[in-house]
Structures are given as C-alpha cells and as structure tokens.
Design a protein around this nucleic acid. Structure first.
Lengths: 241, 241
DNA sequence: AGTATAGGCGAACTGTTGTTCGGTGTCAAG
DNA sequence: CTTGACACCGAACAACAGTTCGCCTATACT
C-alpha cells in the first residue's frame, strides 16, 4: 500500500495500522468538525468494535507523545505533533470553520478579472439576490478559511497578466470582498495611476506599499499608499485543464 | 488570552454581557484546551447558575450567527465569523450554501509530489481500499472531465520546481493515473535520467518528446522517449491561501 | 391593569461518553 | 511447557453533558 503520509518520520510508520488510522481520523475529524471525536466515533471510523481498545490505543499514543488527553472529559483529545498537513494536522488556524454536513460549498462565479479594469464586485448585498441558476463553482470548504460563503465569490482570470502570481488565463480565483488586509495576504489591488488590477502579496512598509509577486523569479513593485486600492483577498485558485 | 474578534465592535457590543462573556470564554477555551467547552463549563466560567440559560444564550448566538452547534453532541460548538450585513440588519438566510442532496466530488489526498521522486501512486485498488475518513478534498465536478472519481486522486506539490507550470509549493494537483496521453495534455512525467518529476504539457515530435512549460516565459525541454515516463494526467490544480 | 417578550432559574430526564474489569488469543523468552 | 507481554474483546458502570419543562422577574407596550 502506498499512501505517502507526509510525516517523513519513520516514527509514524512504526505505529500499528490501527494507531495510524486513529491519528489520521482524528486529524481529519478536527479539521472537519472543529472539535475532537469521541472514543466511540473513533472506534466506528476505524473499525474497532470495543471502546476499550480505542482507549487502549489512545493511551499508547499518549505515551508515544502523539497526542494528549484530558482525563474524564468528553472529546478531551489534543494532537501534539502537528507538522505540515497530514495525519496529525494541527489547527493551522483556530478551528473556526463553518460546516454543514460535508456537502459541497458553492460559490457564485460573478464575472471576470481583467488587468485593465478594477475587479467587478458584486453588490454589497449580492447574497440576497442570489439566483439559483447563477454560475456556481464548487470549492473545497477549507478554502473559505471560515468566511461565510455569502461573502465569497469567484472570478475568472482573463489574460496572462497575473502570471507573476502563478495564475494563468482561465484560472478561477476565489475571493472575499474586503478593503483592508494583513501583511502577506494575497490581494487583488487596483492601481488607479496605472489603470491596472493585479494580484500580489501585500506588504505595508509605511511610506510605501510593496506588492510582491508570488513567483520568486519576479521582482516586487512599490506603490504609494494612495495609489493602491485593495479590492479583495484571494482565498484560493482553481484551475481546470 | 483574549479571543480577538475580527468584527466591527458595534455588532459585538450589541450583544448582552453574558453573550459577550460566553463568546470570549469559548474562544479562549478552544485556544487553551484544543476543544470547545461544555455547557456546564461555560456556565461556571461565566457565572451562570443554570445550564438551561447557557443553552438559551448559545442558541441565541446561533441565531445571530456567531456560532454553530451540533445537536446532541458534547462540546458541539463551533465559532463562526459573522457574515457581513449592515448594522441592525436581520440575519440573512444563508444564500449561497449547500445543496444537501448534491453530490460533492471527494477525492483522496494521498501524498505529495516531489520533484526528486516519481509520483507516489496509490495502489491500483485504492478505490475500494481507502478509508472514507481519509483526507479528502472537494473538487468541482467539472474538473474530473468525466473520469470515474475512483481513478482520480490528489497530491500536494512540494517545492517550487513546478513553478514553470504555474504550480506553487503547497498547491494540490488533481490527477488521473495513466501511462499514456494525448498531445497537449498536462502530465506528470518522471525523467529517469534526471531523477525528476515534473509537470509539463506533452508533445510527441516523433524522435523526441517536447515538454512545454505552461509558463510562456520559459522554454521547453526535449527528452528522448525512453527517458520519459508518464505517470498521470493533471486534471486540475487547487491552491488554498 | 393586562399582557407580551426577553431573560433567567432549578430540577429532572435522557442519551452520551470515559473508565474499568474479567477474559481471550498470540508470540517469544526462559 | 510456562510465563509474561502485548493487543484485543464485550459488557457493565458511573460520570458527564444536552435537552426539556414549569415557574419566576423585569420591562415595555396596549
């Protein structure tokens, strides 16, 4: 069997199949639900018929320092070794995530993003005017990073002017409308002086804004704060070939 | 530790003292413990003597879209960020969300793709073998291009060696396992002589294979057919930021 | 005054969940 | 062969935790 788990550790491989399954399940569960599973939920998912066996293996994993438990508390499990994004996946952020049963998250595709025009934003309240026949695209729920789906929308990129952000003609960018952002966020900015929209990582350097391409072979550009209008934050990119 | 609410204060301030205390406590508790508190833990922390009152306020907060609850599950609380909406506007009813019966397309994320190794392929039988709780990723159905979901899988890209295909470190490529392809397909190829895996557009020019980067600023490379092993066809790319 | 509403209280009830314990099978060292 | 460790099973138990219900208090509106 050849699932490559991104714990390069042979430590992980040394675990029993059940222990591996348990760790993987817990990580996924926390990701999905926002809280850890119960012993019985683990047992059911990993085909372990007895709660005591789950308990046994859980304690084993505590000894091996894969997780921590709070005695006599329901769902009192914490993953300890959390690197990368695999089995022991950490809450990369706070486990603040909407969840509605695992169904797909649908986001309206509202137009195109063209380098020579500001981003076409839907009305502030477009959520209410949502038309079920609108062009919708499924996106992984994680991509929403906890934002409410109603404030997220998708745009198709036209032209190859975003190539320095590793975004190709025809790609779909999933965005959340917002006027501000934190340093390092990938945002769509409208540069009035250049009449250009571009996607770049945003860094406020006080007297100037540094817009850093995502493509390391390319250099950043610098603009005056007055010539830099944030239009939305990019949550993700989807490319279909 | 204070739980930072990234919302305009007015919305938060509009809540009752107890509701504010509850929200703050839940955020801090999750930060501290790794899982949400029970009703009784909230009550004790916020000086609310009756569990029913905590329950009451919790449901109030659900209505106001500050959090979500899983019915009849211990600690079944998730914090969510409130949706936009102007001041004093009634909570909007989830516009763009979830077709429940809709069939999300779930694809197993089975490992990583590293430039220096052949693509780690799941076993031929992974379709029925894999554990439904494995790490799955939702992809737009269209991305599958009609292929059976059981022969499709996803890999996380490690390193920036795919940058000439406009694929970044951390991107997820959705692939179909196959050994042949048509001209122009974007495929993962293993180049034995270079011990490299790379994603390129494939063109058979008879005596040689042309591997064309997707990035127009980069030049194609040419390889001998014997030094070119197709591992799978790329159906799409998903990037989460 | 009468009444509607929001918020609160406490107790009882029910289902959930962690824990414990007697017992089974396997395997390798003594 | 015996022993002990390891992993496992099933069942029962007790504590935990979400829900429900009758009743209370204050405020504002008719």
């Amino acid at each position: 069997m050849t699932y490559e788990l991104d714990e390069p550790d042979s430590l992980f491989e040394a675990l029993s199949e059940r222990q591996k399954a348990i760790l993987i399940f817990i990580g996924g569960f926390i990701d999905r639900e926002g809280f850890p599973p119960t012993i019985r939920e683990i047992g059911e998912a990993c085909d372990i018929p007895s709660t005591s066996v789950v308990n046994y293996n859980l304690n084993k994993l505590v000894d091996l320092q894969w997780l921590e438990r709070s005695k006599e508390k329901s769902r009192g499990i914490r993953l300890v070794r959390r690197s990368g994004g695999g089995a022991g996946r950490p809450p990369r952020e706070r486990p603040v995530r909407a969840y509605d049963g695992g169904s797909a998250t649908l986001v309206p595709r509202v137009g195109r993003i063209v380098a020579s025009k500001p981003v076409m934003l839907p009305g502030a309240d477009f959520g209410q005017y949502y038309d079920p026949d609108m062009d919708l695209i499924e996106v992984p729920r994680e991509m929403l990073r906890g934002f409410d789906p109603s404030e997220v929308f998708a745009l198709e990129v036209q032209g190859d002017s975003m190539i320095d952000a590793l975004i190709d003609d025809g790609d779909i960018v999933v965005m959340r409308k917002q006027q501000t952002c934190a340093d390092g966020d990938l945002v769509a900015v409208w540069l009035p002086q250049d009449s250009t929209t571009t996607l770049k990582a945003f860094y406020d350097e006080g007297t100037r804004i540094r817009l850093q391409p995502r493509n390391p072979t390319m250099d950043p550009i610098y603009v005056h704060p007055n010539n830099c209008q944030i239009q939305g934050k990019v949550l993700g990119v989807v490319r279909m070939l």
